[in-house]
Amino acid sequence: MKATRNMEESFEVVEAALPVLAAVTSGINEPRIPSLMQILKAARKPLQEWNAAALGLTAADFAQNETEVLSNLAPVEQRKKIIYEGKIDENITSLVDSLIKEGVLRG
């Protein structure tokens, strides 16, 4: 198998003999829209369920979580949220005045 990897500084074309595990970035392909026939056929395809027992595993095999999540929260945004609507010229003047006061415009 041959694949192109997008690295920071270059693209690398990489080859490997099978079996290969490849992780693919999103957007690699545009999924086609299945036809009605394909949707109908898909419904009749067999489904194989794999559970822990079928794989010869017990709960103990899964109980080795190595990380502990202390918290997982939406980040807090503390912004001024001054939104100007309506008269564009006046708004631009107000915006530029504010930016001058903030000291973020270079001389």
Binding site: I83, I88, N91
Partner: peptide, 27 residues
């Protein structure tokens, strides 16, 4: 985006940006 800004202008960039550039040139 307006939930995370300090200042926002509701408007079309094609109208606002040239005016903003002009205004900034005067300061």
């Amino acid at each position: 985006i307006f939930e995370m800004v300090d200042y926002g202008i509701v408007g079309d960039i094609y109208e606002v940006v040239p005016k903003l550039s002009e205004k900034l040139k005067t300061v």
